[in-house]
Design a binder for these strands. Structure first.
Length: 787
RNA sequence: GCCGGAGUGGCGGAACGGCAUACGCGAUCGACUCAAAAUCGAUUGCCCUUAGGGGCAUGUGGGUUCGACUCCCACCUCCGGCACCA
């Protein structure tokens, strides 16, 4: 009698799945297409191939694979693909450090990921595998770029951008965290550069509205995106500088406080600033201030604690509601990126304006009375951000400010002094990267024709080989002179290629569509394939992508739908975010030396143990601390299940019906049905795999309790066999090799071809309804009424 | 400051408003061993009691209910996100 030997079992089934291509599914029009089955697209976020897979990957794919298996056994045709997000900075930085070309390091890593995914026994349709760094893939990334360009959704513009001096590249706003580069932690600087942008702001409203189309996303992810988009309702109001005949529109969420504006502030980057100060006494001081601000780090500038600074311009604007002339300032607390880069300052009702007014000794004019019970902040209760009746506001005096709000906007709109407006915090997506290891932007610059898109038939614009990957403030591609020099596709004259590459988030914004038709050399995808599988029914990944990747992919889906190439508005109808695994309570990192190598555990305990453990640690959406003892515990359980199977496998067993009479045996059968019911419910309740696995453990424990002394009886042996087979069936989504092996030994055939077991309500009732013990009159009445 | 999420044994964590603490880990004792490992069995929320038994426990304080970890109100603590966004 051999013990549980995962190596033999796992190799056997992995070979079989590979040979039989068990998990491959066909598209419409292909042989084997399951037209009559409901479809389900189960997808885990594709890995970024750098080095070896870590436990985060193990958890993500173990959870995703369990979901895929559940869906299959609930009668769905499941598409479950895999690929690699293989462009990006780490491979390039490694190249700069070691001299190894990024392609080589990346492809080695991909090979390792691929091999380990197979060793984990993940049920992937490998015929659809893709890697975003291959010309076969990025050709279509470029194609999408050009479609967006045609629609005006990709545009080139000079803009102040976030620049990381260490990585020598610009970053998207989303990649700047606390004023630092998300990747390397260096403080970012501001620079003005010509860059490519995607006009995601045009979709701000739809990105917000279409949360309604989603079936199930974690509330906090939706909230994070909502905050990021940052929709504010208010009004745009024009203030006029009469001396220079210039209008300065401002955005305000508080048009009801317009009468309280006592000064006016421009951002240091405001384009009209130069005109306002040229030749005035303020000129020198303002320039110095602007230069000083420009040198400051984004982080320092964003510090709320810092005292307010600024410089008067010596100019004034007229408040359109009352004709008052109010002085103009430049101050760094006003941001060029938000609104119009200029504000009307209402110190009585805004904390920042109030602070500035105190620092510069400016008048504070209250226009909204506080409620009676308002506890004063300062001696006079200002700044007061709340509601109340209007005062010092001309014809609006005495009205409640909420009421006056709409009336003031309407009044301004009558003669074009202002109008209702909506503003977003969201900015356009900066996609240019002055880096080598990315998809080249498929554009040519011609002296005569300007920006010329590369014609579709000339795609892909292949990434050339270079020797030096180190960026020097321009893309390393600029050094590939032969490649840069080209001819204009429009007029044939000498022209130069764009040398920037695309942000890798562009690559990953559409990969889930390419999976559906990844071998298609003639198109990005076949619309019939996309229609048949999209949207992704269940998306699984880390919460760290809550804003970046998930919002970009939503934007792409909408833009592609508008182009007529997709028929869905949202890419992922259900999202599941798995929690992070820590070790000794800390985030794993190589520098801390607390990493866990999945390969090591798979080698020692087998993939089934490793996979089941990460699903058992706790609720999968929550994080958990890795524990070697916990792994042992799961391994113990699988070994016990194996032993149960071996022992019962040697016995004569009767028909289950004949066994079902005796008390203990009946109890075991009830337990099996309870476990079936529990695992099913835990899955449906949001992938509560930890408790589902617990139920399987309880079933095995119960089988052991019953087994001793009863196995000699063929009837009892049949019940134990039933319990073992049931446990194997239930555990299959987590430990597929062992589940398949035990099922084959006890029942014959393939467990994944069995429909998911359904609990017998009669046997269930026995276990669950006996719980009413100390019943009082009322409850007993209710039970009797029900019975 | 704003927005989310969470508070249950020594630990991870279970509980359609109905036996709180399932399952796992750890710990203690025992069986098998020359011994260890593995395996198997027993015990394991806290306090009191020789025992039988009793008392107290789901962050804190109230409320609804025959009955509350669960629902309602207030508060405390921790974690995550956003933050000079006008």
């Amino acid at each position: 009698m051999a013990g549980y030997d995962p190596k033999t079992i796992e190799e056997k089934w992995q070979r079989l799945w590979a040979e039989e291509k068990t998990w491959e599914v066909a598209n419409p029009g292909q042989p084997g297409y399951a037209a009559d089955k409901p479809k389900s697209y189960v997808l885990e976020m594709l890995p970024y191939p750098s080095g070896e897979p870590h436990v985060g990957h193990l958890k993500c794919y173990a959870v995703g694979d369990a979901i895929a298996h559940f869906r299959r056994r609930h009668g769905f045709e499941v598409i479950h693909p895999m690929g690699y997000d293989s462009f990006g900075l780490p491979a390039e930085n490694n190249a700069i450090k070691t001299g190894e070309p990024p392609r080589e390091a990346t492809e080695r890593s991909i090979a390792s990921f691929h091999r380990q995914f197979r060793e984990w026994g993940i049920s992937i349709d490998w015929s659809r595998e893709l890697a975003t760094h291959t010309p076969e893939y990025y050709r279509w990334t470029q194609w999408i770029f050009l479609r967006l360009f045609e629609q005006g959704l990709a545009y080139r513009e000079e803009a102040p951008v976030q620049w990381c001096p260490k990585d020598a590249t610009v970053l998207a706003n989303e990649q700047v965290v606390d004023g630092r580069c998300e990747r390397c932690g260096t403080e970012v600087e501001q620079r003005r550069l010509e860059q490519w942008f995607f006009k995601i702001t045009e979709y701000a409203e739809r990105l917000l509205a279409d949360f309604d189309l989603l079936e199930s996303w974690p509330e906090h992810v939706v909230t994070m995106q909502r905050n990021w988009i940052g929709r504010s309702e208010g009004a745009e109001v024009s203030f006029r500088c009469e001396e220079l005949d210039l209008d300065f529109p401002v955005f305000t969420t508080r048009p009801d406080t317009l009468f309280g504006a006592t000064f006016f502030v421009l951002a240091p980057e405001h384009p009209q600033l130069e005109r306002l100060i040229a030749g005035t006494p303020a000129e020198v001081e303002v320039r110095e201030y602007v230069n000083r601000v420009a040198r400051e780090s984004v982080e320092d500038r964003g510090d709320e604690e810092r005292p307010k600074t600024g410089v008067p311009l010596g100019r004034s604007v007229v408040n359109p509601v009352n004709g008052e002339r109010i002085p103009m300032f430049v101050a760094d607390y006003v941001l060029m990126e938000y609104g119009t880069g200029a504000i009307m300052a209402v110190p009585a009702h805004d904390a920042r304006d109030y602070e500035f007014a105190r620092a510069f000794d400016l008048p504070v004019k209250r226009v909204i009375e506080g409620a009676d019970d308002d506890t004063a902040r300062d001696d006079d209760g200002l700044p007061y951000p709340g509601d109340g009746p209007m005062t010092a506001s001309g014809r609006f005096d005495g009205k409640h400010n909420r009421e006056a709000y709409a009336e003031i906007v309407a009044w301004l709109a009558e003669d074009g002094r202002g109008e209702a407006a909506v503003n977003y915090r969201l900015r356009d997506w900066l996609v240019s990267r002055q880096r080598y290891w990315g998809a080249p932007i498929p554009v040519v610059y011609c002296d005569a024709c300007g920006i010329v898109p590369v014609p579709a038939e000339q795609l892909p614009v292949e990434l050339p080989e270079v020797d030096d990957y180190a960026p020097q403030g321009r893309s390393p591609l600029a050094a590939a002179e032969d490649w840069v020099a080209t001819e204009c596709p429009r007029c044939g004259a000498a022209a130069r290629r764009e040398t920037d590459t695309m942000d890798t988030f562009v690559d990953s914004s559409w990969y889930f569509i390419r999976y559906l038709d990844s071998q298609n050399a003639g198109a990005a995808w076949d619309p019939a394939a996309a229609d048949s599988w999209l949207p992704v029914d269940q998306y699984i990944g880390g919460v760290e992508h809550a804003i970046l990747h998930l919002m970009y992919a939503r934007f792409f889906t909408k833009a592609l739908a508008d182009l007529g190439t997709l028929s869905v508005q949202e890419p992922f109808s259900n999202l599941f975010t798995q929690g992070m695994i820590t070790r000794d309570g800390a985030k794993m990192s190589k520098s801390k030396g607390n990493t866990v190598s999945p390969a090591e555990y798979v080698e020692r305990y087998g993939a089934d143990t490793a996979r089941t453990y990460v699903c058992f640690m706790g609720p999968p959406e929550r994080g958990g601390d890795w524990s070697d003892e916990g792994v042992e515990g799961v391994n113990r359980f699988l070994s016990r299940l194996w032993r149960l199977c071996e022992e019962v496998g040697e016995r004569e067993t009767a028909e289950l019906d004949q066994a079902a009479s005796e008390g203990e045996v009946r109890e075991l059968l009830a337990k099996a049905h309870w476990a079936i019911d529990k695992v099913t419910r835990d899955f449906e309740r949001g992938f509560q795999f930890n408790t589902a696995i617990s139920a399987a453990m309880e079933l095995v424990n119960e089988a052991y309790r019953v087994k001793d002394g009863l196995l000699a009886d063929p009837g009892a042996a049949a019940a134990v066999r039933f319990a073992a087979a049931t446990a194997a069936s239930l555990i299959f989504p987590f430990a597929p090799h062992l589940g398949a092996e035990i099922w084959e030994r006890l029942e014959g055939g393939r467990v994944w071809e069995q429909p998911w077991p359904v609990a017998d309500p009669e046997l269930l009732a026995r276990d669950t309804v006996t719980l009413v013990v100390q019943v009082n009159g009322k409850l007993r009445d209710r039970i009797e009424a029900a019975a």
